[in-house]
Amino acid sequence: MTIRDVAQAAGVHVSTVSRAFSASHLVKRETRERVLAIAADLGYRPNETARALTTGRTRNLGLIVSDIANPFYPPLIKAAQAYARVRGYQVFVADTDEDVAVEEELIRTLARQVDGVILVSPRLANDVIGRLGGELPFVLVNRSVAGLSAVLMDVAHGAALAVEHLAGLGHEHLALVGGPRGSWTSAQMRRAAGRAAADQGVRLDVLAPNPPTEHGGIVAAPAVLETGATGVIAYNDLVAIGLIEGFDDRGVRIPRDLSVIGVDDTVAGRLNRPRLTTVAMPTAAAGRTAVDLLIQTVETSGGGPATAQTVLATSLVVRDSTATPAHPAG
């Protein structure tokens, strides 16, 4: 199968097929998607070795996450890999294990092997990310740094929805169990939840920083109980599940005695008992969008950093871990 066969089947010139794979920003989106779909149906694959010699590109992308064991990341990774493959790219995935030193080391290591890097929920300081982004095309997910493209999931809106949901049930004292130090998501949640709590006339206690893990939730459980809050919003589903486990060890039943809300809408939260009320994050869409932005940056003349920013909507999924407070105030 050759590029001419694809062009004939798509009803376009050979050069259009070539641009659809190697310079997609020069082709209308509808045409590009039609060409790529026909190429996939016909089993056409570009000669990557020849293209690399011509363009100086590897057709490889880096994707760095903070904890690959966290169930938030696999849907994002799978979506990014699948979309990159359709566009003629491969994705190298690396895990920092929440270590900023490892994160910077991985970026520098991958820079020699890829055309650009997607950083998901990075922990590095903004100035470090900005400096590294000046050396290699970057796209950030859930982090905003001036001069770099970003895909942001609107967790602030989700946190506000969580506060409004609990206040609507009659909770007047809430707790927010935040995430790790340096987390953009945790900072967004804290600000938005604080504003929403003030608007709703409820008290909000913030407990942070905390490890973004199930164990982190277990450890934080006693401190939450000490606040006297009747409703809790956790940094993510893993922390929420850990909180529920920690509460259960102390005879506190969910949602009879305490309501709990997570963030992410992972499989773990859906399988937990009680099933977890949570803020659904569009992880698969974020993976595809980040790859698309990075490829646009890589294929733009000069390969300089882009400044596009995409915000993806979040929503509240109400399940079994929230209810009216057992002993409402007054």
Rank of each mutant, 00 (worst) to 15 (best):
G170S: 03
A23P: 01
P122A: 08
I254D: 03
V120E: 09
N142M: 08
A156M: 11
V102P: 00
P328D: 04
V318G: 09
S22M: 03
L176H: 14
V151L: 08
Q8Y: 04
V155D: 13
E135L: 12
V139M: 09
E299W: 09
T314C: 15
R256L: 12
V14D: 03
L276W: 05
T55K: 06
R34G: 01
A313G: 11
V252S: 05
G179C: 09
G330H: 02
S15F: 01
E30G: 02
T213E: 06
I118E: 02
P255W: 05
D99T: 04
P46G: 02
L53W: 04
T54C: 00
L312S: 10
F138W: 04
S259R: 12
D97E: 13
V219D: 11
R112P: 01
G246Q: 07
P75I: 08
T49R: 15
G262M: 09
G216P: 00
G217P: 01
V145N: 03
P325T: 09
R59P: 00
V177C: 09
N210S: 12
R181L: 14
V263R: 07
F92L: 15
K78V: 14
L110Y: 05
S15H: 03
D292G: 02
E33Q: 12
L312Y: 08
V141K: 12
Q309I: 05
P282A: 13
S149P: 00
A160Q: 14
E135P: 02
V279G: 07
G56R: 14
R45K: 09
D5A: 12
E214S: 09
R181Y: 06
G246R: 10
Q90K: 10
L76N: 07
M189Y: 05
Q309K: 13
V202C: 01
S66T: 15
L225W: 01
T16Y: 03
V65F: 06
A146K: 06
L316W: 13
V202Y: 03
L174T: 01
N70A: 11
A323C: 05
G116D: 02
A308K: 09
A159E: 04
A39Q: 00
I241W: 04
S301E: 14
A196T: 07
G11C: 06
V128A: 14
A234G: 11
P46Y: 08
A101G: 06
A125D: 14
T289N: 03
P212D: 11
R34D: 04
E33H: 03
T213S: 15
T278K: 14
A220K: 10
R34Y: 00
G130I: 00
I233Q: 10
T289L: 02
A9T: 00
R253L: 15
A290C: 04
L238S: 14
N47P: 05
V206I: 14
D127T: 11
A162S: 15
E104D: 05
A94D: 02
T307C: 05
A221M: 10
A159F: 12
A284R: 15
G168D: 00
A290H: 06
T283Q: 15
L110H: 05
G133F: 04
G88L: 04
H327N: 11
I77R: 08
A229N: 09
E103T: 01
V117P: 07
T310I: 15
R143S: 08
R190M: 12
T283W: 09
R270Y: 07
K28T: 04
T49Y: 10
I261H: 11
N60L: 15
R181W: 01
V252A: 06
A37K: 13
